[in-house]
Design a protein around this nucleic acid. Structure first.
Length: 419
DNA sequence: TCTGGGGTCCTAGGACCC
DNA sequence: TCTGGGGTCCTAGGACCC
């Protein structure tokens, strides 16, 4: 059996842990730049705030329902996530962290365990130790565990947050209940096509012929179908090193000058380099893109990206910045108001097993240099040491007007308790 | 005025190899 | 009239996830 454990309204729940006065009240968390709603408490959902809602369009509704609005505090969410995952890892030797707020657990050899009780124990321990409410779905396959989790979340009173699909009757009932577009792995495009074929539930999807599914949704869709039928097809995945690393941002204001963009691109390239070093990778190529604001039809639009092959693999912030700026020079055009840009590094190899070339002029001194830079920045806080090409005052330049304290990762932000 | 960020996998088609 | 067979690698685009 597999369990899918999912934190309820994760970001909103994190904000509530240190603000219990917000329990029972509508809470939303905004994306970077305070742009869109990316998390909602149940009360906020009930108030009619959709996922992805642009904040400025919903200000009135926020006011009407006294919604508590927060800027994204990823330092807090990341730390809370690792606390939750630590606890869950005690419930099975085989765990896959699927996202910041979700994990699969595999129960092999748990035949003599009462899994209902096992799930209930996870739930109460995570709640007691972290303050985060979770839902647990347990079933013979990963896709069915996802379905079970959805049921647990939808009917918290009846299920007490834990639901098990352990019989054919329960499986059929669950699949008939689940709408096509809510199936894990069926997105908007496919669900629209499926509706045109009168496939409105997960059950109807499993009644399609294998070749029909494969033709329409490739091997990925067929695997999903089998998993929903109760045939374990999707297995646990090993934590892998990333194959792409991106650092991209929407700007607080429009940038029209090359110099402004160059500073941003330098910061993004440095951040990519740091993430590369963290997983011990070097990249062989890099992509830079710049976009104007696509929502402004009154302004001239321009959007381009360029991929640069590097002469040698690297994870040096100095080198990546140099190459990223070369790329930017090639695509920058005067006369546009830029709103978004980013750097994506790709084609990785392991940093300590590089294939070297006879003619490369790689500066070996960067390796020890960035070891020191990373050590200093870890010890004294993010971006204490930066390249001169980066802004010396601010790093991300985002609007974050409603940022909560970093309660768990910053000594100055620890709460004081008055007895 | 204001609209997020970061990933994965699969397929088809073209270029190229022997 | 008739023009082989079997591969690999790369890229772009489409779909999906949180």
């Amino acid at each position: 059996m597999f369990a899918l454990v999912d934190c309820n309204n994760f970001y909103a729940s994190c904000e509530r842990v240190f603000r219990p006065d917000l329990n029972g009240k509508p809470v939303v968390v905004l994306s970077n730049n305070d742009g869109c709603v990316i998390a909602r408490s149940n009360e906020a959902k009930a108030a009619g705030i959709p996922m992805g809602a642009p904040a400025f369009e919903y200000e009135k509704l926020f006011e009407q329902h006294s919604v508590q609005v927060f800027s994204a505090n990823f330092a807090l969410y990341g730390d809370m996530s690792s606390r939750v995952m630590d606890i869950l890892s005690g419930y099975s030797p085989d765990m896959e962290i699927y996202s910041i707020d979700e994990a699969f657990l595999k129960f092999t050899g748990f035949e003599h365990f009462d899994l209902q009780q096992h799930g209930a124990s996870m739930r109460s321990k995570v709640l007691k130790w972290t303050g985060i409410p979770i839902s647990v779905g347990i079933a013979p396959t990963k896709a069915l565990a996802k379905v079970a989790n959805r049921i647990a979340k939808k009917y918290p009173t009846e299920t007490r947050g834990v639901y098990i699909i352990d019989s054919e009757e329960k499986r059929i009932k669950a699949l008939k209940w689940l709408k096509t577009e809510d199936v894990w792995g069926i997105g908007r495009q496919h669900s629209q096509r499926l509706y045109r074929m009168d496939v409105a539930t997960a059950y109807a999807f499993t009644q399609l012929r294998d070749d029909v599914v494969q033709k329409m949704m490739s091997i990925t869709g067929l695997r999903l179908k089998h998993d929903l039928e109760g045939i374990p097809t999707l297995d646990m995945e090993e934590a892998q090193i990333k194959k792409n690393i991106a650092t991209t941002r929407t700007f607080e204001t429009n940038y029209t000058q090359y110099g402004q963009l160059a500073e941003r691109i330098s910061t993004f390239a440095s951040a990519c380099a740091e993430k590369l070093r963290l997983q011990n990778s070097c990249c062989h190529s890099l992509m830079v893109f710049i976009h104007t604001n696509r929502h402004r039809e009154d302004l001239p639009q321009y959007s381009r990206n360029i991929v640069i092959k590097l002469p040698y693999p690297t994870n040096s912030g100095i080198e990546l910045t140099k190459f990223a700026l070369q790329a930017l020079k090639q695509i920058f055009k005067q006369g546009f108001a830029y709103k978004r840009a980013g750097v994506v590094v790709q084609d990785f190899s392991q940093a300590d097993r590089l294939q070297r070339s006879l003619f490369e002029n790689r500066d070996e001194r960067h390796v020890p240099l960035f070891k020191v830079v990373d050590a200093i920045n870890t010890h004294f806080g993010q971006q204490k040491v930066r390249l001169a090409a980066q802004d010396t005052k601010r790093v991300w330049k985002m609007r974050q007007e409603k940022l909560s304290p970093r309660y768990t990762t910053r000594i100055d932000d620890i709460i004081t308790i008055h007895v």
